[in-house]
Design a protein around this nucleic acid. Structure first.
Length: 100
DNA sequence: GGGCTGACTGACG
DNA sequence: ACGTCAGCCAGCC
C-alpha cells in the first residue's frame, strides 16, 4: 500500500453520504494535475470501508461497467440521477476535503 | 529497463 | 450533448 494510495482512500472516506466527487478533483487535490487515471487505479484496489462508489468521472457519470450496482448504492444514499443517467455535480459535488 | 493497460480529462468537430 | 484524439501517472508483464 503506497502513501499516495492511502491519501486517496483518506479523501474518499471524507465524502459524506449523499455527496460525490470526481477522479480529476481528487487527483488535482493530491497534486496530480493529470493523473486522474491513477486515482481510479488506486480505487481499484480500495480496501473495505472506502466508499469508492461515491467517486464518479468528471461528467457526473459512472465510468465503471458495473454501473448497475454503483448506481444502486448511490441512489440508496439519496443521490438522484438525471434522465441521462448522470449525477448533477453542482448539487451533489463534494469539495470539503480536509488535508490529513 | 522497455512497453502496454487502465474505474480519466480536456479539447475539437 | 456525444464521439474521437491525445496526454499523464502508476503498476504489471
Amino acid at each position: 500500500m503506497n502513501k499516495q494510495f492511502e491519501a486517496v482512500y483518506a479523501l474518499v472516506r471524507q465524502i459524506p453520504a449523499g455527496k460525490v466527487a470526481t477522479y480529476g478533483q481528487i487527483a488535482r487535490w493530491l497534486g496530480w494535475d493529470h493523473g486522474a487515471r491513477t486515482v481510479g487505479w488506486a480505487l481499484r484496489s480500495a480496501p473495505a470501508g472506502v466508499p469508492w462508489h461515491r467517486v464518479v468521472n468528471g461528467r457526473g457519470a459512472i465510468s465503471l461497467f458495473d454501473d448497475g450496482e454503483q448506481r444502486l448504492r448511490l441512489e440508496s444514499e439519496g443521490i438522484c440521477f438525471n434522465a441521462l443517467g448522470r449525477i448533477d455535480l453542482k448539487v451533489y459535488g463534494f469539495d470539503g476535503f480536509v488535508k490529513v
